[in-house]
Design a protein around this nucleic acid. Structure first.
Lengths: 309, 309
DNA sequence: CGCGCTCATTTGTCTTGGACATATCTGGGA
DNA sequence: TCCCAGATATGTCCAAGACAAATGAGCGCG
């Protein structure tokens, strides 16, 4: 099938075929070929059958390019700069602001790669603050810090992975530990295809559970049509969608509007997350939640309105 | 970039572009095109610019084909049979062996969309069986059942989403509850880009924790180079990768081999999961784990070998 | 000065048909 | 029965062209 292990000729100049580069950089084969055609980079050497063999330096530069493009740079503007220039571009970012001590401790342990103490620092913050404050202050602050540090290149990929896993462990643990539902609505909670961020979703779930709502969490990336079918199946009163700031605001609003048209009048649609935090406009029939306080108000409002009936 | 909602024209005859089919079936664009050229299937209609638009029935048949091919059938032999014939081939293979009562109860609650009882049934099975048996018997059995039922259309998308979320909640809860590490190796646990299945990874993590190993979980889709950098940072002794059956076996072996060349001799590389469960060949310097028993055996062997030094 | 519109450019994805390496099957000989 | 060689099946790669979606620039208007 695939010819991997391409460093058969020269052990120190390991070679990667186009499939390996696609996997390691996230750039599609088509993109790699069209960059070579248009910009002259990367220009890999070829094996005996004219198939591309990328060098390790090329692979590293491609990963830097990918990072910068994700941050908003245009490929054509940066592709012909040197690797060192690209590194400087990454580290040239505004320094962080003062962080509260709880957050600073957690970050320190993460950067020291001390897994056990990192876990304990998180658990300690949770115990000290309680679930609600932990989520709305500490986790939100950590997310923000990690996002900034990631852009500045001060955090490595695996640090972010480890962070995400442990936050998930702790939030899911807290969610399970919640007592049964109270008087709130049944909230169907998920995100639309393209939105892969799970932590925001779990934060909302934790807050909802802590406030006594019954949460039906479907994880990320549920197609709209399946959300429509899930609402009657689980007898949901509200559908809540999360949009991270990776999603364009217009796309988030469009998704909410489309879902709104598919659902009956009595079902409420809520939207929140980074993409909508600064939204001016709203969608008709959709409730935008710009903060966790908004979320709690919305819950309270729902309770008041439905207690009368 | 990515065309998400493709069913803009006709709601009932939803259309999928080639990228969506690749994502949903795991068959590469190249494969889809070459099948059309060679076998005449699938033969999608084209949009105004001659781009392929696959129908939902085609997509479903492609999924069946993918499953049968993974089971050992040859594409050329089955590609021109009808969808019903293919379904029969699938159900003929697995005579729906009797499911144990623990599993049957859980499945029943899932299909009834009774979230609370579903959760309770899972928790009860965990309490009754203990973590190890729960993971290796109940969760493994449920995964298998869900996979089969999904192909047979007996399970809806949102059922699967809900299932995945709750299994994650419970496994992560169990993982956190484990006492500190024992005498085992530090195992770095993750999957390669393209492998999005989290449950298998969590199952492994649960077993490792239960057996006293120190687990450093990085979640899914860690690029190989970042795995290489993570090993010294976390002082890992072993890197374990999980490959679900959605991944081609060759790709899994190639990834393992590449990682092997990047890591120093002293670091072990383990691979497991559905993609490798039936692998005949292995990769040099890589330990293939074809079952959870293999995993426990590997742990034991590591302990013996490293106790002597 | 900000806002929205239009037009130009950039950039990623899709197209075709050919080529070939590797996996798998088949048949023959020890 | 086992193993090897040749035939077949199958997936991946290549080339250059085309175009649509995303982005940026220019411009008029309140």
């Amino acid at each position: 099938m695939s010819a991997m292990l391409d460093n058969s000729t020269d052990p120190q100049a390991a070679c990667y075929n186009i499939a390996a580069v696609e996997r390691d950089t996230g750039l599609s084969k088509d993109t790699l070929r069209v960059w070579e055609r248009r910009y002259g980079f990367p220009k890999p050497r070829r094996d005996h059958h004219d198939e591309r063999l990328y060098s390790l330096p090329d692979l590293e530069k491609l990963r830097l390019l990918r990072l910068l493009i994700d941050q908003g740079h245009r490929p054509g503007k940066i592709i012909n700069r040197s690797t060192t220039e690209l590194s400087q571009l990454i580290s040239a970012r505004a320094p962080e602001q003062s962080t509260p001590p709880e957050i600073a401790v957690i970050i320190e342990m993460l950067l020291l790669h001390d897994v056990d103490r990192f876990r304990n620092a998180l658990l300690q913050a949770l115990m000290k603050q309680g679930l609600l404050r932990f989520v709305t202050e500490t986790v939100a602050g950590l997310n923000h810090w990690i996002g900034e540090a990631w852009l500045a290149g001060r955090v490595q990929v695996f640090d972010e992975h480890l962070y995400s896993e442990h936050i998930q462990n702790i939030l899911r643990n807290a969610i399970i530990a919640q007592p049964g539902r109270g008087s709130g609505p049944r909230v169907l909670l998920t995100s639309l295809p393209g939105e892969k961020h799970r932590i925001g979703l779990l934060m909302v779930e934790a807050v909802l559970c802590a406030e006594g709502a019954a949460c039906v969490a479907l994880g990320t990336e549920t197609p709209i049509i399946d959300i429509k079918d899930a609402v009657p199946a689980y007898r949901a009163d509200v559908v809540a969608l999360s949009f991270s700031s990776a999603i364009p605001q217009a796309a988030a609003l469009a998704g909410l509007a489309e879902l709104r048209t598919l659902l009956p009048e009595g079902i409420e649609v809520w939207g929140g997350g980074g993409a909508l935090a600064r939204a001016r406009k709203t969608a008709p029939g959709v409730l935008l939640l710009r903060s966790f306080d908004d979320l709690r108000y919305a819950l309270e409002r729902w309770r008041v309105e439905h207690a009368m009936r």
